[in-house]
Computed example of a mutant assay.
Amino acid sequence: MRRPRTMEWAARSNHMGGIPRKMLVAAVAAFARAVANILNTTTVYNSETLIRLVQSRPPGVPLLTVSNHMSTLDDPVMWGFKGFPTADPKLVRWVLAAEDICFKNSVLSYLFRLGKCIPITRGAGVYQEHMNEALDRLSDGAWLHTFPEGKVYQESAPIRRLKWGTASLIARAPVTPIVLPIVHHGFQEVMPENYLLGRRPPFPLWNKNIKIIVGDPIEFDLPKLRETAVSMSKHLSPSSSGWPKTTPCGLDEPAQKCLYSSISEQIRTVMENLRSFGKSIPFLKS
């Protein structure tokens, strides 16, 4: 399998004095605000919870936001709503990004690295190399965003079974992150996957309505979840699929899978409840 162009050096905050990142963040923030607020109408429910956790959560406590994935523009445009601090490089999220889309060549790799993106190889598993980089960012107390569905889904349908990568980060992080669920609707109309001859439009569409529903932090009883996972996995056999035999908390492969499945299902249930709630409310002012 081809390794992504990693360019870790471009992701460092002190790269060239931080000037390239500041320039890129300012440009992307302007683009996101224009798409969200000028070209289209964006309404947000419970935006104050997201803003508060981005700006003033306890020192050293990481923030992990999770959302559905309806278009290639979800990030960064979902952060472009009025009142959100989009232009501060220190507050901008880190995000897991598909290496086959965002890291196709050196130019894209450099730009996405400046934009605090971490390359992830879809299908390479929860223990692939750059998941450790994501864990490092959580260890730093940073904000990380993930799309746990793993790919773009533009159908108006229930939240699908989530990939286990996000759950593994929650379970393995040295400090358990604040996990904040977000569900949005409308990006599939701003950037439809099948617009002209089965391709995306060359630029965002306009006069669309975007709705963003921010939930409340999800509480995880990790000691109890680990205990349950061990109990559930007693009669399961390892699959010798490249997973570590045990984790630092002493879980073997079957127990790890049960734990990640349980965490993922808890997140999926909350996201689906948000999606159902969002369908029942009108467009709101952010």
Rank of each mutant, 00 (worst) to 15 (best):
R2V: 14
R5Y: 07
S13C: 06
M16L: 15
I19T: 15
R21Y: 12
L24W: 08
A29M: 05
A30S: 09
N40R: 12
V44Q: 03
V44D: 01
S56R: 13
G60K: 11
N68K: 10
V77Y: 08
V77S: 09
M78L: 15
F81Q: 03
G83W: 04
T86Q: 13
T86H: 09
D88W: 06
R93W: 06
W94S: 09
V95A: 15
A98G: 15
I101H: 13
I101G: 09
L108K: 12
S109M: 12
S109G: 15
R113F: 08
R113M: 07
L114P: 05
G115N: 12
K116L: 10
I120A: 07
G123K: 02
V126K: 02
V126N: 02
Q128R: 05
M131E: 05
E133P: 00
D136A: 09
R137Y: 00
D140P: 00
A142S: 10
A142T: 02
T146F: 10
F147M: 12
Q154P: 00
Q154T: 05
L162A: 11
T166L: 06
L169V: 11
A171D: 06
A171T: 05
P177W: 07
V179T: 02
I182N: 10
I182D: 06
F187H: 14
E193P: 00
G198V: 04
R199C: 01
P204W: 12
N209G: 00
V214T: 10
V214H: 08
I218M: 05
L222I: 13
K234C: 04
H235Q: 09
S239K: 14
W243S: 13
P248R: 09
D252L: 03
D252V: 04
D252G: 09
A255Q: 02
C258D: 01
Y260M: 05
Y260D: 03
S261W: 02
S261G: 06
I267E: 01
I267K: 02
T269L: 05
M271W: 08
N273R: 02
L274S: 03
L274A: 02
R275D: 04
F277V: 00
S280F: 03
L284D: 07
S286A: 12
